[in-house]
Design a protein around this nucleic acid. Structure first.
Length: 514
RNA sequence: AGCGGGAUAGGGUAGCUUGGAGUGCCCGCCGGGCUCAUAACCCGGAGACCGUUGGUUCAAAUCCACCUCCCGCUACCA
């Protein structure tokens, strides 16, 4: 039906710490967009992966007495598992330390930039802490000593490759200003513009092999230098769809329609990355979607506070869809949000259970008990038709919000749709009419079953498991977006067995503290 | 310090461009109704000096100025 492609990416997390709910949030947001496009019939590519070429991994591996490759293998696996469990429908999981998949593409990218005359060698001079094995700015050093080791960094000089970012200042400014490279939300666009207007300086894109401890992607034609991790990490967006390994696939998907990122890495995506692509002569991504961070009970997640929330634990405890629902409906799409288990439970019970779960259940059970589990032959009344008509406005609302990536608004509209169906159930009162006017009850249930089917479609981007379960309960194949509003659940169709979609979460007394 | 964003009922948001009764949404809370359904659904209600102060105006959440408080960015650090 559609020949359109849609290519979306998550940022690729560092693998040197366990995934937390911030990563889970990003996966869920990305996935909701991807599933929506799929439901609309687009050919969707979703690339995620892991950023493995950092020095920290070398250190962590040393501490564990294993090789960096082994460490990355283990840690990447955890992120991949998180993606799988939370329902991230990725088409490629790109690990940056896997040579055959990733390196040919980034090598080509580098070479194209070099050919454009944008890569040059320059002496870099800075304050280097041997303990940290990294450079510091003067402003980062209280009393002139390394904050961690309390030693005075030495001045070290090293020759590195630099990227001529300054050359692209004007073009970048225009691209961002005009919205040709769209940055959402607008506040982030302003930040980027402010940064660009402040003047762009060239930045280093390589490290000495010694300093990188030999770990990372080597610079083509210079085995003394390793690529700066960001240069190769950003390259994931290209190599994930076959750049350097599968040209046909690459040409089908590139450019990216959306890069989903956290606010901490905005500059890399909205300034460095487009500049690199311009240099290499590649098309630019269309949109950079910037989400916020998650606080826990009002506090920043941090190791020292010990309040890092593990997404695996939440999934085990509450299930995938309630957690996805929390991320999409409670956390502002483009802003920071707070997480609390109490609120998760509340939303599960009062929104998911009471609205969607209850609607599906009461419809299914009613059909089972009164119509032997078969969609009845009923001719919709004038009121039924008016209701169906009035519901149509919601399809557009959900779609438009999703087209603009306003996920929370879209989900709210989908919930409002479900809510209206509940209201219709109440107003039609089939439990009365089934005794007095069976034809009327039949019509109501025929309408209700079809509306429940539409709920399943509308929820599919957000709550895929719920959506699947509703289709299973209806005893039918999954339907895409273009089935919305159609009475495709036909009279005579036999439905499946009713099932509880969202178990109530009872809060335990153990929460009490004195 | 500079630049940018924000302050709307117990929580979270929309409204602000193009002033017109505090208007809306998602929850929470209280009351009533109903009963097909996951003790749910429906209806109703309480709750806001729209951050402070001042100005423009017949009229300001909305425009202007000052102030207070929060947050982000200010380069090679998710």
């Amino acid at each position: 039906m559609s020949n359109r492609k849609f290519y979306i990416t998550t940022a690729i997390p560092y693998v040197n710490a366990a995934p937390h709910i911030g990563h889970a949030l990003e996966f869920v947001q990305t996935d909701a967009i991807a599933r929506y496009r799929k439901a609309r019939g687009d050919g969707v590519g979703l690339v995620t992966g892991s950023d493995e070429n950092s020095l920290k991994n070398v250190h962590a591996a040393e501490a564990k007495k294993i090789t960096p490759a082994q460490l990355c293998e283990q840690n990447a696996e955890v992120f991949k598992k998180m993606g799988d469990r939370i329902g991230l429908s990725y088409t490629s999981f790109r690990r940056t330390s896997i040579q055959k998949d990733h390196w040919p593409g980034v090598h080509r990218l580098w070479e194209l930039c070099a050919k454009a005359g944008d890569v040059y060698k320059k002496k870099y001079r800075g304050l280097y802490c041997v303990g940290c094995e990294s450079f510091y700015e003067e402003s980062e050093l209280p009393d002139g000593v390394c904050p961690e080791h309390k030693t005075k960094p030495e001045t070290v000089e090293e020759e590195n490759y630099f990227f001529r970012l300054s050359k692209y200042q004007d073009r970048l400014e225009k691209l961002v200003e005009s919205g040709e490279l769209k940055i959402l939300p607008a506040t982030k666009k302003n930040e980027v513009l402010g940064f660009i207007k402040g003047g762009l300086q060239d930045f280093s894109i390589s490290r000495s092999v010694t300093r990188a401890k030999g770990w990372g992607v080597p610079v083509p034609g210079d085995d003394k230098q390793i690529m700066y991790v960001w240069f190769d990490a950003l390259g994931t967006y290209l190599t994930g769809i076959g750049y350097g390994t599968d040209e046909a696939q690459f040409n089908k998907y590139w450019p990216a329609d959306v890069h989903v990122i956290g606010k901490g890495i905005l500059r890399f995506h909205a300034v460095y990355w487009p500049a690199i692509l311009l240099s290499a002569g590649l098309a630019l991504p269309k949109t950079v979607f910037v989400h916020g961070y998650i606080t826990v009970e009002g506090q920043k997640m941090s190791k020292s506070l010990g309040n890092i929330v593990d997404p695996f634990m939440l999934i085990d405890k509450y299930g995938v869809d309630p957690l996805r629902y929390y991320f999409l409906s409670e956390v502002p799409t483009f802003d920071d949000g707070d997480f609390s288990e109490k609120l998760l439970a509340e939303k599960n019970n009062s929104e998911l259970g009471a609205n969607v779960g209850n609607l599906v259940n009461r419809t299914m059970v009613f059909l089972t008990n009164n119509f032997a589990g078969e969609i009845p032959h009923g001719e919709p009344t004038g009121e039924d038709k008016a209701f169906l008509e009035s519901q149509k406005a919601q399809y557009g609302k959900v779609a438009q919000a999703l087209d603009e990536l306003r996920l929370k608004d879209a989900l709210d509209s989908a919930m409002a749709f479900s809510s209206s169906v509940n209201k219709f159930f109440q107003d039609s009162a089939p439990w009365k009419s089934v005794k007095e006017d069976r034809a009327k009850a039949a019509a109501s249930l025929y309408v209700l079953a079809n509306q429940v089917k539409d709920v399943a479609i509308l929820m599919s981007p957000f709550l895929p498991n719920t959506s699947d379960s509703i289709f299973a309960q209806l005893g039918m194949e999954k339907k895409g977006w273009d089935d919305l509003g159609k009475l495709s659940v036909k009279p005579g169709h036999k439905i499946g067995k009713p099932q509880i979609l969202f178990a109530r979460i009872e809060r335990k007394e153990t929460q009490q503290k004195k």
